[in-house]
Amino acid sequence: MPEANAARGRKVMARVGCASCHTIPGIAWPQGQVGPALQGFAAGNLISGQLPNRPDVLAAYVRNAPEVLPGTTMPAMPISEREARDVAAYLYTLEP
């Protein structure tokens, strides 16, 4: 994903409150417990245990999860497509 910027992605995640549900390295507060912790995301497991872990799929998922994976718990989030690519880029920096 050219142009995607992980540092920007971290700020987007802090701003919209992803950490209300997920504990995310690099975001000090909150450290939500409702969804899975995201440390080690870069290891490349399936997204939500079901989707192929590809940058394009991930960027679509963090923006509008129910559209990509009907029935998933994660809701659509108020971010643009570009911001979604940045978020995906940040997630791929989270080593185990």
């Binding site: 409150g17 209300s20 549900c21 939500g32 417990q33 409702v34 994660m74 809701p75 989030m77």
Partner: peptide, 29 residues
């Protein structure tokens, strides 16, 4: 303390204690 969107609403309802420890809303996990 949190922006108001569907995601933060779900996180708050699901486990407000993880977000604001000690507040009087129980976790609904």
């Amino acid at each position: 303390i949190l922006p108001n969107n569907r995601g933060t609403l779900m996180g708050w309802i699901g486990n407000a204690q993880a977000i604001k420890p000690g507040n009087r809303m129980p976790p609904y996990s």
